[in-house]
Design a protein around this nucleic acid. Structure first.
Lengths: 176, 176
DNA sequence: TATGGTTACGGCGAACGTAAGCATT
DNA sequence: AATGCTTACGTTCGCCGTAACCATA
């Protein structure tokens, strides 16, 4: 089946139900009702033309087909989790990415940053030298320092040493 | 991020957009509009707090974070595809699973089946000896042969040699 | 002017919950 | 009775399309 048409949500429900061997407990994990789980599994079985579970009066048993497919499915989820984890590297609260003009970064910021780093064990600072106007949609910047006559489009800025220091929050924060 | 909360559909859109480096072409692949793709990507970026694409006026560029996450994401999809393929083993039109009483299978069916096999190169027949009443929700049976005074719950059946031969189609077929 | 991403808004259908039912222990 | 899957039915909300907008080449 082509990637475009994979029943992703159905597969997730299948994985949960198979791990718990119970629609009820799977529903609990997924924060839905058992009926919703049953509907997903039924839809998946109908779509693929394969019975996934033998329904016994006390719980479930996996069919041979389901058993065969589960290892790959779980590998798939593991890779998805890893992928999202990689996306969120730099999102950990201990990593801050700062953009600043190259000269300012070198002469003013870097020395103070070194001291700050020394005092904050475990805090990771990434420093980017900016070349032009900062666009928070262009990179994953947490904090930008730049200079100019005025802050663009009314974003909050603070005067810093005769320069303007602009704590332009990244979109994640700005948007509640 | 926990498996339960992975934004699966968003990740699929991300994968498509990253492969094409274009929301428009990704939308084409996914059979939706570019607006829908943009909405998914935006939602994913907001959810994860990560910018995935630099929007240039002519197309897209991947951010470093996105670049780092893509290999795992694609591995994940590959495993999902393999998993579904495994589920559908036995669904290929060249594989038919037949359930029949053990004695009937051995004495009547097996010899004829052998001949039929010989005449139909590439057709794979799986034969299951049934022990009790057939329940199509209990296994992945394509065709069941059994005997008794009457077919259960009005499912279509054909008289076969003084026994009742019941072509109880599996759910996939019955339900259009 | 053509291309392509962005935004606002409204409609529709899939997904869900509720509640009742059924089978088994 | 208690557990647990199933089914019917009504509702809701997420996804999508439309259409207008904006920026660049």
């Amino acid at each position: 089946m082509k990637r475009t048409h994979l029943p992703l949500n159905g597969l997730r429900v299948f994985d949960a139900a198979a791990r718990h061997l119970s629609f009820t407990r799977a529903a609990d994990e997924l924060a839905v009702t058992p009926a919703a789980v049953g509907q997903h599994i039924r839809a998946l079985e109908d779509l693929l033309g394969v019975v996934l579970f033998r329904r016994t009066t006390r719980g479930l048993e996996l069919t041979a087909e389901a058993e065969a497919a589960l290892p790959s499915l779980r590998l798939g989820f593991s890779h998805f989790e890893q992928s999202v984890a990689l996306l969120q590297v730099g999102q950990a609260s201990t990593v801050v990415t700062i953009s600043a003009p190259a000269s300012f970064a070198a002469r003013w910021l870097a020395p103070r940053l070194a001291a700050y780093r020394a005092q904050n064990e475990g805090l990771s600072l990434r420093l980017f030298a900016s070349t032009g106007p900062i666009d928070f949609t262009q990179a994953n910047i947490d904090l930008a320092i730049l200079h100019g006559p005025q802050a663009p489009d009314g974003q909050p800025s603070h005067l810093l040493q005769g320069m303007r220091w602009r704590p332009l929050l990244r979109r994640m924060c700005v948007r509640r």
